[in-house]
């Protein structure tokens, strides 16, 4: 993709401690989180689909459990988004940048 690039040894980079750390930090966050929000969403869909009586329970005024549950899906989406951005900025970006700088400067020295 770049013109200056000598072919780095990708397998060596892949095996380096920094990269292993980066991959572990990414996967340990996104896989459980993806599982969590999918289960949470499916729970909501299944309840709305198969337990309408429960979802219709009034909490206050005309607000029922179904509406609150639905709005909580919005809240959880916003919260997961913010958590991920914080995680990525703090724990992923610095490591990725370090690896990138190392590999790209090595390419130019050759």
């Amino acid at each position: 993709m770049t013109t200056t690039e000598q072919k780095p040894d990708w397998e060596e980079v892949q095996a380096s401690p920094d990269f292993v750390l980066l991959r572990r930090r990414l996967r340990r966050f996104v896989f459980p989180m993806a599982g969590l929000f999918l289960v949470w969403y499916l729970l909501y869909v299944l309840l709305a689909d198969y337990a309408p009586g429960f979802m219709s329970t009034r909490l206050f005024g005309n607000i029922n459990i179904g509406l609150v549950f639905g709005l909580l899906q919005f809240v959880s989406t916003f919260v997961i988004t913010m958590l991920y951005v914080r995680h990525a900025n703090k724990n992923l970006d610095p490591v990725a940048e370090k690896i990138r700088n190392e590999v790209e400067s090595r390419g130019e020295e050759k």
Binding site: M1, T2, T3, E5, P8, W10, E11, V13, Q14, F19, L22, R23, L26, A96, I99, R100, V103, E104
Partner: peptide
Amino acid sequence: DQKKYAEMEVRSLTGIGAEKAVGH
């Protein structure tokens, strides 16, 4: 293709190549 996967995984997580290309 073990080599190609290594390249793809490293590039996808670090942005090597993709990010630098912008400066050119």
